[in-house]
C-alpha cells in the first residue's frame, strides 16, 4: 500500500482505463491481434495496481476472493460449454457452425467471442490468484 498522493491519484485515474483497454483487447481478439490471454493479463494488472496502491482489503471489497476462485472455473466451463453445444447438436466438439446454422460466419464470430471470454475470465482470475499466493496468503 502506497502513501504517496501522486501515485494514488494517478493510479486511481488509470484504473478504469486499464480495465476498458483490457475489454478492448478482449473484443478485438476475434478479428485481430489480442484476445483472451492478453486481455486477462491486462484486467488482472489493473486489480494488482489497485491492491498495491490502496491495500488488499479495499481490493478484496471490490473483487471478493470467492468470486476470483469461482471465475477460474467458470471461464473454462464457458469454453467447454461452447464445445459441448456442438456435441449436443449432433456435430463435433467445438464446432462453431451449429451456433447459428443459417449464417456460419456469424456462428463462428459468436463461438470465438464466447470462447475468448472464457479464456479471459480464467487468465485474469488465475493471475490474481497467483499474485495473492506469492504475497503469502494461505489458499
Amino acid at each position: 500500500m502506497s502513501e504517496s498522493v501522486v501515485l494514488r491519484t494517478i493510479g486511481g485515474m488509470l484504473f478504469p482505463y486499464i480495465l476498458v483497454y483490457g475489454l478492448y483487447v478482449q473484443m478485438h481478439g476475434e478479428i485481430g491481434p489480442g484476445g483472451g490471454f492478453q486481455a486477462g493479463v491486462l484486467v488482472a494488472a489493473a486489480f494488482i495496481l489497485h491492491s498495491l496502491l490502496f491495500g488488499k482489503e479495499l481490493t478484496d471489497r471490490l473483487l471478493p476472493t470467492w468470486l476470483v476462485d469461482l471465475s477460474m472455473s467458470l471461464g473454462v466451463l464457458l469454453y467447454i460449454g461452447v464445445g459441448i453445444v456442438g456435441l449436443v447438436k449432433g456435430s463435433y466438439f467445438l464446432d462453431y457452425s451449429v451456433l447459428d446454422p443459417t449464417h456460419p460466419a456469424h456462428a463462428e464470430a459468436l463461438g470465438m467471442t464466447l470462447v475468448e471470454a472464457g479464456v479471459g475470465l480464467t487468465v485474469a482470475s488465475v493471475i490474481l490468484t497467483m499474485v495473492r499466493k506469492v504475497n503469502g496468503e494461505p489458499a
Binding site: 477460474m72 472455473s73 467447454i80 459441448i84 456435441l87
Partner: peptide, 19 residues
C-alpha cells in the same frame, strides 16, 4: 462422440471440483 468424451468427462470434473 465417444473419443472426445474420454478427455471431456474428467476435464469437466476437474474444473467443477474447486466449485
Amino acid at each position: 462422440m465417444l473419443p472426445v468424451l474420454i478427455v471431456l468427462i474428467p476435464l469437466v470434473g476437474g474444473v467443477l471440483a474447486p466449485i
